[in-house]
Amino acid sequence: MKGYQIRNGEQRDQEWLYDLYCKTMKPCIEATWGWDESFQRKGFCENLNPTKWKIISAGHKELGGFVLNQNDDHFWLEMIIIKPEYQRKGIGRRVIEYLQDTAGKKSLPLKLSVIKANPVKPFYQKLGFKQFDEDDAFYKLEWNS
């Protein structure tokens, strides 16, 4: 990604990532299910180990991160979080385009889910994602090359 660096997450990133998760996701989670700090911390640590993350930076500034899983028939974007002060500056778009390029090179769709309380669905739709399913809490979106 031109202008940005991506590195593998490390154990030392755990607290930084969890703090960023809280800053970015707490309002949506709270609006959907309520926020239980011990439940959220436990779930984050068990399911989003820092070594699964790719950390996005520019120079010496860490801007956010994402977790991308490759399955046999698709890529799944587990999560993307960008520091609030760097949101709406094109970083998320650049990351998604990078992930679309990654998926496109393997001829696989890129899928993700969005909590309904999170207003980012139009952002993904502008980038070519289509809704393929939904449940009470989530929209499920998919991009195909």
Rank of each mutant, 00 (worst) to 15 (best):
G43F: 03
K42M: 02
K42T: 14
G34N: 04
F39K: 10
W53S: 11
I56K: 09
K61L: 03
P50Y: 07
K61V: 08
L48Y: 15
I29C: 05
T32C: 05
N69E: 13
G65L: 05
G64R: 01
H60M: 11
T51R: 07
N69R: 14
K42P: 00
K42A: 10
R41Y: 03
N69H: 15
Q70V: 07
L48M: 15
P50F: 00
E46R: 03
I55F: 09
N71S: 08
N47C: 11
A31K: 15
N49S: 14
P50S: 07
N69T: 12
N49F: 10
I55W: 05
L63N: 02
G65K: 02
P50K: 05
I55L: 05
P50R: 01
N71H: 15
K52F: 13
E37N: 14
E37C: 12
W53C: 04
A58F: 02
F39S: 07
L63T: 14
F39V: 00
T32V: 06
F44K: 03
N49R: 15
A58G: 09
C45M: 10
G59E: 06
N69Y: 15
L48G: 08
N71I: 08
A31R: 09
G34M: 07
N49V: 11
I56S: 08
G65E: 05
E37P: 07
A31P: 13
A31I: 09
E37V: 07
A58H: 05
K42V: 07
N71R: 10
K42R: 10
N47A: 12
T51P: 03
G43C: 07
L63S: 05
